[in-house]
Amino acid sequence: MESTDGTVRTSASRIAIVTGVGSGIGGIGRGIALDLLRQGYAVLAADRDAAVQDVVRDLARQAGGGADCLGYAGDLSRPDEARAMAEAALSRWGRIDVLVNNAGSGVIRPFLEHDEASLVATLERNLWTALWCCHAVLPAMVRQNHGRIVNIGADSLRTGIPGHAGYNAAKGGVVGLMVGLAREFAAYDITVNTVSPCVVNTERHRQALRDDSELARAFLQVVPKGRGVEIEEICDFVTFLARRENAFATGQDFSLNGGSAMP
């Protein structure tokens, strides 16, 4: 049902945008979107792949009756696409309470094997996408005097595992962006945090271990817990930071790393 201003009335208590809900690295974005839907959020699920509409139908089915989910397909490293995504959420619901910057993937290889194209792609997918999505949603959050932004970072910033220099440059930029935004927008009840997993225990990672991959074994060698983080563990932390009640933690990079890096 539409309200008088053209937005759609929803039973959801909060409105969230989750980027990178396609296949991605282990399906983290899809897991976060589903978790938020099950907690009663309305969710705009975004991905660069047009198949995001299939993901939305699947999310709605898994979340059960009444789930309010909208899909958006576009390259969010482009400012016009990020703005269009934010406008899609505002046109439908009239507000944006939460942005989860999950979109991103890295070209993982030794630094001197990178070329311009692979480094530019890594920066665009991770840093530029997060930056433009923040730029797109923050005006609405300022008007509301409320917002929660959660980035998905990388614990490789702390551990220096092989092949991650280019990827770390992008994710390190996301952490720098977080710190600046957290301070600049704190007065508007807008918090900005980052959740940084170590290796994620996906089926692809498990298969790499079965194949005796040297890179997969190197990942685990730095984790005292001896395993990767589960997607559900990432989702729990993200949805905690997204809550309205979580109003004081801001500008923090939270490691989900099984002890691979400690203060």
Rank of each mutant, 00 (worst) to 15 (best):
Y41C: 08
V8A: 15
G147H: 01
M262S: 06
G40Y: 02
L90I: 02
E184D: 15
Q39R: 12
A33M: 07
A45K: 03
A216V: 06
R217S: 08
A165M: 11
T122A: 12
V192R: 09
A67M: 09
E232Y: 06
R125S: 15
W93P: 00
L59E: 11
L138Y: 10
A218L: 10
Q252L: 11
N201E: 15
S196E: 14
Y188P: 00
L220I: 02
G160K: 04
R143V: 01
T159L: 15
A50D: 14
F248N: 03
D211S: 10
F248C: 05
G31A: 13
G228A: 10
D5K: 08
E214I: 13
A136N: 09
V200M: 01
G163A: 07
T129V: 01
E230L: 13
V107E: 15
G29D: 10
A169T: 07
K171Q: 11
A170M: 04
T202E: 13
V150L: 03
C198D: 06
T159K: 11
R183G: 02
G153M: 07
L99A: 06
A216Y: 06
V222G: 11
T191N: 09
R143H: 10
I25K: 09
R95L: 02
G259N: 04
A89M: 13
I234T: 05
T194G: 05
S91F: 01
G166R: 02
E214T: 14
P224V: 03
G27F: 08
Y41A: 04
S105Y: 07
S260W: 13
A208Y: 08
P162E: 14
T239L: 12
S77W: 09
